[in-house]
Design a protein around this nucleic acid. Structure first.
Lengths: 137, 137
DNA sequence: TGTTTACTCTACTAAATCTATAGGTTTATT
DNA sequence: AATAAACCTATAGATTTAGTAGAGTAAACA
């Protein structure tokens, strides 16, 4: 299941992408519009800023704005930043690979092979959907 | 991410499906072969038994065995029993639907629409893969 | 009938993660 | 200087995960 963190993050990005101008939007504007706890959203936006997807401006008239064009922000990237691996098991993750301690032979593991299929399908969607696609739907 | 519970459950079912005869296999045989904590596996097998996928026999020569042919056990069903909803958000779940409290209009939610796509893709795989398919791979 | 074997069931726990919240700090604007 | 708004650290409560402990129950077998 998707965490609220990721869900809120995606909603906030969508909100920013929908703005007419790419000017700073205050956290409280986003949090009120999208029904997200102000403080929680704050921490999420901070993560996205550090990852390079958001820029920020302090002080009066400040807020957050997109650092990239929505078409250059694949959902997969946001997902990895906020949620972590897209794969269902570390042993099938491309970006967060880890060996299973209980599995002597990965290639012989039927669960492993199944989850590779699932991963590929999810990846295909999440890599090929951008923030721009999201606001169109 | 897939919980160990589900992973272990699938591995145990796979182990049983691989047996030549469908005769009771002791928990300890499975737990040792698959490197799973005996007590933890015990609780997982119990769940699968109550769900009707496994039968059990007590006493000497006892153990667990499949109640259905592997081709009649879709992975999606096992997943739902052990892991819960396949959907990434309750608002896109077919079997465990729940409205989001933060979302006034589901149809207007871009995250919602994206996750429907993801769900459909995962479902397509998990519904159409049976335990029998798993042991072949 | 008694013993062993193996599943059944309830309860508990340690650790991790999630979902925030609190409160002070820094920076920019007016 | 006053105010606005992001920045940052710490913490806390709730939930979930991944088990563990131990007594109970049923079947087999001698």
């Amino acid at each position: 299941m998707l965490s609220r963190k990721t869900k809120y993050g995606l909603k906030a990005l969508t909100f920013l992408a929908k703005q007419d101008k790419n000017e700073p939007v205050q956290i409280s504007v986003i949090s009120q519009s999208e029904n997200i706890s102000h403080k929680f959203l704050e921490s999420i936006l901070l993560i996205l800023r550090k990852a390079g997807y958001l820029g920020s401006k302090k002080g009066k008239g400040g807020g957050y704005y997109l650092m990239k064009h929505p078409s250059d922000i694949p959902i997969a990237a946001v997902y990895r930043i906020l949620e972590g691996p897209i794969a269902m098991m570390p042993c099938v993750s491309l970006n967060f690979y880890e060996k299973c301690d209980d599995c002597p032979d990965e290639k012989a593991c039927s669960v492993h092979n199944l989850m590779i299929q699932v991963r590929d399908n999810c990846l295909q969607i999440l890599e090929n959907t951008s923030l721009e696609d999201l606001i169109k739907s």
